[in-house]
């Protein structure tokens, strides 16, 4: 029997889990809150964006705190998706659905982030540009799904995070943590959708 020692396997998996919360999940939450400023109108929003973009070294910060962690999480996550084999049609349990939705939402979020970053970084980042994009039905669906899937992926991942790190061990604590996560999902989704509404 071959027991090929892959000493980094455990480390990579745990790093993947940790990156999902710090920094990616925290950034997502921050992002959702920051975009509430869109409710202050086009001028105010553009000013906030301008301030953010003029922070010295913002590119480095974005690279290290946002892009690299997301890239690692996304690339390894895609490998994780590949090594799974859903059987939700034979085992129709809620958690088994969450297992597959976690994977679908992850893949969708990667595609969404690429489009989102392309539009914001390389096309035009201001209120009216986003407003115009969201006025097309397809653009609206892309964004609404992207926000909801990203939040789901984060929140469901946070549920599993508590198991991965040995915090919630028994079924009862896992259930209570799940109820807490449902509340977080509703809360963040409300903010995310309100953000979209501000541009309509």
């Amino acid at each position: 029997m071959s027991t090929t020692q892959k000493p980094y396997h455990f480390l990579i998996r745990r790093a993947h889990s940790l990156l999902g919360l710090v920094p990616i999940g925290l950034f997502l939450t921050f992002h959702m809150f920051l975009n509430l400023t869109a409710h202050g109108g086009a001028e105010f929003y553009d000013k906030v964006i301008g301030t953010m973009q003029s922070v010295p070294g913002i590119f480095i910060i974005e690279l290290v705190v946002i892009f690299i962690p997301i890239a690692i999480h996304a690339i390894y996550g895609t490998w994780v998706v590949y090594t799974g084999q859903s059987n939700v049609l034979r085992y129709k349990y809620a958690r088994n659905w969450f297992y597959i939705i976690q994977r679908i939402s992850g893949l969708y979020t990667v595609v969404f982030i690429i489009i989102h970053v392309y539009l914001m970084r390389f096309v035009e980042a201001n209120f009216s540009a986003l407003s115009a994009f969201l006025s097309q039905p397809l653009g609206l669906i892309l964004y609404a799904l992207g926000i909801l899937f990203a939040i789901f992926h984060f929140v469901n991942g946070l549920w599993a995070f508590a198991i991965t790190w040995g915090l919630t061990i028994g079924p009862h604590s896992q259930k209570i943590w799940m109820y807490a996560m449902v509340l977080v999902f509703i809360f963040l989704s409300a903010i995310g959708l309100a953000n979209i509404a501000a541009f309509l």
Partner: peptide, 27 residues
């Protein structure tokens, strides 16, 4: 800790429902 070990679990929790001996596998 190796490949194929515990870190490969995806937390679908099907196992605990499927076990005929009601073993608390997810715990």
């Amino acid at each position: 800790l190796d490949e194929g070990g515990i870190a490969d679990c995806g937390n679908s929790q099907n196992c605990v429902r499927a076990c005929p001996k009601d073993i608390p596998l997810t715990t």
